[in-house]
């Protein structure tokens, strides 16, 4: 029982971190960034390259990965999203193509084979007979710290409030002197950083390989569909619903079915509450 609670907490924390960067862009820019999963891939590989191949300190590896994530996010916003002028269908398709191109780019640089990422902090702690690696523990703590800081940023800072205003009403925000373009830039940058950091943890949780961007994208998708768009708190709650469901199904029914219940949850929510659990009026 306690094991399920702990496992669920660990997995959900990671899922929340994965999803939050994706929902941020969806709620503020109203666009689906299918290249979001690629941030995780880029983050994971950057960390691998700088801390494991070049041997830089691990914390430097994480920071560099985050910075590369920021740059990637900004470039995608500038070169793709702005060029397509808010045509949401075109952005969806273009970012999917871009994700495949980025994946091919990683294959070009690092090869097809999967890489093993050394744990950020090695070691194991035993809780009630369940082995919890320090690595996973660090990932969960880091994800909580990041989510809380993001929450405070959005609530307390001037830029954060501007982001909220743009997410509610772009035109209204523009009238009250907010530059939606700047807000979008900041959002895409933050989203890139969040994705890249999530990628470091995700890769150390699973493994590092070029196709690794698909499953976190699916997780983010599930969180958005189930939760509707918008709040960080909502993302956190839904990430826990999905995380716990998967852990419970894995331990109580069959590990192979864990993805299946997530999908059933998606269908259920769409049928019963098309706007999502925390959905918004205009969707």
């Amino acid at each position: 029982m306690l094991q399920i609670i702990i496992q669920g907490l660990l997995l959900s924390g990671l899922y929340a971190l994965i999803a939050v960067g994706f929902t941020l862009i969806f709620s503020i820019g109203r666009v689906l960034n299918l290249a979001y999963g690629a941030y995780l891939m880029i983050g994971g590989y950057s960390y691998f390259y700088f801390s494991q191949i070049l041997g830089l300190p691990k914390i430097a590896g994480v920071v560099i990965a985050a910075l590369i994530g920021v740059v990637t996010g900004l470039l995608i916003y500038r070169l793709v999203v702005k060029t397509l002028k808010g045509d949401s269908v075109a952005i969806e398709i273009a970012t999917l193509i871009l994700a495949v191109v980025l994946q091919a780019g990683v294959v070009l640089l690092f090869g097809d084979a999967s890489k093993i990422l050394l744990p950020i902090i090695p070691g194991v702690v035993r809780v009630e007979g369940a082995a919890v690696t320090y690595n996973v523990l660090v990932a969960t703590v880091a994800s909580w710290v990041i989510l809380i800081s993001l929450y405070l940023f959005v609530r307390r800072t001037h830029m954060g409030r501007a982001m909220q205003a743009v997410s509610m009403d772009v035109k209204g925000a523009a009238i009250s002197g907010i530059d939606p373009d700047r807000v979008n830039m900041v959002t895409w940058g933050i989203s890139g950083a969040l994705g890249a950091i999530a990628g470091v943890f995700f890769a150390s949780y699973t493994q590092l390989y070029p196709g690794m961007w698909v499953s976190p994208l699916i997780i983010a998708v599930a969180v958005v569909i189930v939760g509707g768009i918008g709040s960080i708190i909502g993302t956190l709650i839904v990430a826990h619903v999905i995380g716990y469901m998967e852990v419970i199904v894995t331990s109580a029914i069959a590990p192979e079915l864990r993805g299946v219940v997530t999908m059933l949850l998606i269908i259920g929510v769409l049928v019963l509450r098309p706007k999502g659990l925390f959905g918004r009026e205009e969707l």
């Binding site: 969806f26 666009v31 689906l32 299918l34 949401s88 269908v89 969806e92 698909v214 499953s215 994208l217 699916i218 998708v221 599930a222 958005v224 569909i225 192979e256 993805g259 299946v260 999908m263 998606i266 269908i267 769409l270 049928v271 098309p274 706007k275 969707l283």
Partner: peptide, 24 residues
């Protein structure tokens, strides 16, 4: 169910369904 919601959600759901089918 996905056709009832806005276009972007439809795109998301289809992506999820492919993954579901793969696992199933």
């Amino acid at each position: 169910p996905a056709l009832r919601v806005r276009g972007s959600y439809f795109a998301l759901v289809t992506l999820a369904f492919m993954e579901l089918m793969y696992q199933l």
